[in-house]
Write a protein that binds this DNA or RNA. Structure first.
Lengths: 115, 115
DNA sequence: GTAGTCAGTTCAGTTCTTGAACTTGCCTGT
DNA sequence: ACAGGCAAGTTCAAGAACTGAACTGACTAC
């Protein structure tokens, strides 16, 4: 038997909960930008490459999930920008590790001396 | 004035590369099961709740991405199980942090004493 | 007044995901 | 032997989600 008391069953852990909030293609990229201090819609859109509609939906669900908050920076042309909440900021270390992993294992480029 | 010389531009970093491999709803959950030592298709399927077709596709792409490898555990009824490669195992700490974050911020349950 | 910026929304088409069967190969019970 | 099961997938139609391009408002610049 390979298993040593690994309890098998319908395991529910925080990973599943986390993925409900950030388990899609664009959320983490948007969060990365917010972590860089970029909070404007168009900048996030350009830097991540997400389609505007997707980004809009994603930011909205991140806001509902309590990861980001919207702040008005211009009244008259009503313009908002997005900021990380504490919950969002606490995700940044995870993103950092994910980036490190990605650079080690997922990047087809560089991986050596040049450039 | 929150920004202090944050270079704006088309930022490309390992996060995007990582998300190509694991940036979907089921990959990380499957990886979690593999991390628990559960490598059988049906068990992963039940524990994660992923539809069979999705799981099959996901495991294939994880295999192509070098995160898991398939190992035959029965010849005559040809049956494979999945194991983490080194790249896959190195992702487990990230998953651990994601779980910790999820338990702190994404779970609607618990969250301390009151509620 | 014409053009441009910013933050989204709308639209129609494409792609992805899902659940429910179905298949293949073997093992079990009677 | 033969029906019935289990395991690991595959197939298919339907539905959900995503996408790029164009459009809306509310301004600002020339």
């Amino acid at each position: 038997m390979s298993s040593e008391a690994v309890p098998t069953g319908p395991r529910v852990c925080g990973i599943a909960d986390a993925l409900v909030l950030v388990g899609d293609r664009w959320s983490l990229l948007a969060l990365r930008e917010l972590g860089f201090g970029v909070g404007r819609f168009n900048e996030i859109q350009v830097n991540t490459g997400a389609p505007r509609a997707s980004l809009s939906a994603r930011l909205r669900s991140l806001e509902e999930g309590g990861l980001v908050q919207r702040q008005r920076y211009s009244e008259h042309p009503p313009r908002d920008e997005y900021l990380l909440t504490e919950a969002g900021r606490e995700l940044l270390p995870v993103l950092g590790e994910l980036r490190a992993w990605g650079e080690r294992h997922a990047s087809p480029r560089v991986r050596g001396t040049s450039s």
